[in-house]
């Protein structure tokens, strides 16, 4: 067998690929579901934190800043492992999916809060004053006047962060979630051939290449103006 043939047999073994395809496809959809769950909870939780921070209650703000710093400083994999292997000791069982979802949502929440907060503080003070001078209360001003402008500014930085963190779904393979990478690794040990990994890599590219390209477009389209 020539080198080229051996290469093809290892990485593009069609028989192995056909064998493992259904599992990778299942993994693909699991990755999509996990990613969507993380994006939804992370972005909403981050927004809630930023809104609470805007209330300006000192001790509460220190707590928020600490939580945000904490989840910016800890590697996502460490958080996943801690939740998955640590919580059962407290009698709280968390599935691998649950651990990955919770951990990555916390990470996205922290980054999103920072970005939202930066956006809120970037809205000129005059906007607050104009609304408040017509008798609109604090929260309606935040909701109707400040946040719409702030969110527009946050679209580019949030997009790239969100993409980076959803790619962390691959980390869930470490806690036995059969998402793409998990399914591919299982396929490799089953068939003793790395073609499932090729398939897995392709699956990630199919999923994330459009997202990365879309993200690039969004970043230029909605770039910080002012």
């Amino acid at each position: 067998m020539s080198n080229w043939d051996r290469f093809l047999d290892s990485f593009f073994n069609l028989r192995v690929m056909a064998d493992q395809l259904p599992k990778i496809v299942d993994g693909f959809f699991l990755t999509v579901v996990l990613a969507l769950c993380i994006v939804a909870t992370g972005l909403i939780a981050g927004l809630l934190l930023a809104v609470v921070r805007a209330l300006g209650i000192r001790p509460l703000n220190w707590l928020i800043i600490f939580v945000v710093d904490l989840f910016r400083a800890l590697p996502p994999l460490v958080i996943i492992v801690l939740l998955y292997f640590g919580l059962p000791a407290m009698g709280m069982e968390l599935s691998g999916f649950g651990a990955a979802w919770l951990a990555l949502s916390l990470v996205l929440m922290a980054f999103a809060e920072e970005v939202y907060w930066a956006g809120i503080t970037a809205v000129p003070k005059g906007q607050w004053e104009a609304a408040r001078s017509t008798g609109i209360g604090f929260l309606p001003t935040l909701g109707a006047v400040v946040l719409p402008q702030a969110l527009r500014m946050t679209i580019p930085p949030l997009t790239s962060r969100t993409i980076a963190i959803t790619k962390g779904t691959a980390l869930a393979s470490v806690v036995a979630v059969p998402e793409i990478l998990g399914a591919a690794q299982a396929g490799v040990s089953f068939s003793f051939n790395p073609s499932p990994l090729t398939l897995g890599a392709l699956a990630y590219l199919i999923l994330f290449l459009p997202v990365v390209i879309l993200g690039r477009w969004i970043e230029t389209r909605f770039a910080w103006k002012r």
């Binding site: 001078s133 017509t134 008798g135 609109i136 006047v145 402008q149």
Partner: peptide
């Protein structure tokens, strides 16, 4: 109380994401 006190600012401070009508109607 502020409903009874209209204020006009040096830098207008219109809400850039709303139409003229939306700006006036918000309050």
């Amino acid at each position: 109380a502020r409903q009874r006190i209209g204020m006009v600012f040096q830098s207008f401070n219109l809400y850039p994401h709303m139409t003229a009508l939306g700006n006036v109607a918000l309050a």
